[in-house]
């Protein structure tokens, strides 16, 4: 069995006002994990821990089989990282950055770099200072993708992009992700982006990884139920069923373990099930956070 691209076990990092709390996470080689969480959930801390830039207080981090942060140099030779707060040098050109990065990475593919520049409609001679936010993100992705990393760690790369730039970036990522040996961890608070490219989804909130599963499994197992409880009955308390509106006879409930048996149980309890609706990833995320915060 091959070692996962990313392995985190019980990783904890405490700050004065925030704790990355006991995160355990595996990303298999070739898979694309979307990490969804609100601002301050801990996504960036988690990713920086993966790069060895933050030393955890407890737990184990391995990236491409390398112990982090001790073996960060060897690991980073095969990792491409782009984050929303990453900046390039203002007064030099994209070409200068390409030359700088190509000297560091023997795997740099100059032909592919030119292809990327063309696809992203970037002129290598342009100074970074004159680039829009979208162009800067594309320039950073060019610098990362052209060295053909085995693992991509992308921290909110689509944040702040206009729809066209977002589409171009996601389309390029989709193409890159066709390579089965390449693994990706992609964070965003835009669930549509994550849903589009990921095959595994993880939810983070308040420093904790609250759920992680195959995307299709998420979408299949979460349902919103519109039910009516007769006056002489009360809404049954079923495991993994949360009532969004507990008052009145008409109720909306969500569940993360939907199956036919659940509707059967509800009907036996005198409940009329009017509709069983699929949920979007965003709705699933919100319900998951609600469930997690309720349990905490």
């Amino acid at each position: 069995m091959t070692e996962p691209a990313i392995h985190m076990n019980g990783v904890t990092k405490r700050y004065r006002d925030f704790t990355l709390d006991n995160v355990t996470l595996d990303i298999e080689t070739g898979s694309i994990m979307g990490l969804i969480g609100p601002n301050g959930a801990g996504k960036t801390t988690l990713m920086r821990t993966l790069l060895g830039l933050i030393r955890p207080d407890a737990g184990e981090v391995r990236v491409l089989g390398r112990q982090m942060p001790a073996e960060q140099v060897r690991a980073k030779e095969e990792v491409g990282y782009v984050s929303e707060d990453m900046r390039l040098y203002e007064h030099v050109s994209i070409r200068w950055h390409m030359n700088f990065v190509s000297r560091i990475y023997p795997t740099w593919d100059p032909a592919y770099a030119e292809v990327l520049l063309d696809r992203f409609d970037l002129a290598a001679s342009h100074s970074v200072k004159g680039l829009s936010h979208g162009q800067r993100v594309k320039a950073m992705l060019t610098l990362v993708l052209a060295r053909r990393p085995r693992l991509l760690i992308l921290d909110e790369p689509t944040t702040g992009l206009d729809p066209i730039a977002r589409h171009e970036v996601l389309a390029e990522l989709m193409e890159v992700l066709a390579d089965p040996d390449r693994s990706v961890l992609f964070s965003s608070h835009n669930t549509q982006d994550v849903e589009q490219i990921s095959d595994v989804i993880s939810f983070m909130d308040r420093g904790r990884l609250i759920d992680s599963s195959d995307k299709e499994l998420f979408l299949d197992s979460w349902r919103r139920l519109r039910i009516e409880v007769s006056a002489d009955a009360c809404a049954p308390e079923l495991p993994n069923l949360i009532y969004d509106r507990p008052d009145g006879s008409l109720k909306v409930a969500t569940t993360n373990r939907f199956d036919d048996a659940m509707t059967h149980q509800l009907r036996e309890a005198g409940v009329t099930v009017h509709a069983v609706e699929s949920m979007t990833l965003e709705e699933i995320f919100l319900a998951n956070v609600q469930l997690s915060r309720g349990a905490a």
């Binding site: 790069l51 830039l53 960060q72 140099v73 060897r74 980073k76 030779e77 990792v79 491409g80 990282y81 782009v82 984050s83 707060d85 990453m86 900046r87 390039l88 040098y89 990065v101 560091i104 950073m140």
Partner: peptide, 15 residues
Amino acid sequence: EKKPFIMSLPVSPSD
């Protein structure tokens, strides 16, 4: 220094 960019490269704290 553009530290997130530089430290994303195979650069150790000592380097």
